[in-house]
Amino acid sequence: MIAYQSIGTALGMALFAWLMQTGLSGVDRKITARIQKRRGPVWYQNFRDVFKLLNKRSVTHGWIFDLGLLIALAGAIGTAMFMPMAGIIPLQGYDNFFMITYLAALGVFGRALSAGASGNPLAAIGVMRGLTQNIGYKLPYMVLVIVLINYYKTSSISGIAALQQVQGWSVLKMPLGVLVAFISLHGMLGKKPFDTYLAPSEVASGPMVEFGGKYLGLLNIAHEIAVFVEISLFVNLFLGGGATLAEFLLKYMAVYLLSSCLGAVMGRLRVEQVVRFYYKVPIGLTILQVLLFTLLYGGVS
């Protein structure tokens, strides 16, 4: 039985996640601008954008379009509610890795459903590209996490983070693996060079092509929360979570801003190049890492 109080904490967590990530993505825009020798917008520009979008009128494309968006938003908020952060575990005992993976898939599914229902061919191309890319980056990531779960003998994210505080971070045990996981995370965030499914000049922002006004605003909120979940998962699993909230947030910002800096200086790959890259380099490195890990830290039981 989960107490109402912990559900309140969990909802607060999701709200905090949105506020922090939206602010941070404004900082990301600022940093990208500085890299391109521009001044860039104010750091709270993304809040202005979201509130403006929620103030606009827009059209719907049928009830599946609405429903898919709500599923995406609910999936994102629901995932963020389970995410442990530096010893703050909103729903104790439910922060299982597999649960979070499945809930996160709900958000992606909702977005794909909604975009598909809009009936725009560019949205369909975007969804197809996104899912193709998903297969590319999910495979090495999952293999690495399963190795970690096998090593730590727990699939609880807070458990893995707590064990890393004692035994040392996973990044020291599997440096190649963390590199691969970071490449996968870069793809999950849709940063360049892996933003084939967004590609504004190519497929007109892909799945978002028919979203406008309030719909785009809600999609933006869902996206920011999903980004929070992806980065928190990376920090918790590979960088040892955090003993204090400040430590956790510092690692979080380092990972996110490194990803955005890399994104600012790269061009876009084509979708077949992305998939070919993921099936060559990260999977090769993953196999090497799993062999090394098995030799150094005991066999797979």
């Binding site: 860039g40 104010v42 504004p200 007109a204 922002s205 978002m208 406008g212």
Partner: peptide, 11 residues
């Protein structure tokens, strides 16, 4: 972009 203006892909 410092005025908060951005090019967008669709109407």
């Amino acid at each position: 972009e410092r005025l908060g203006m951005m090019p967008m892909a669709t109407p």
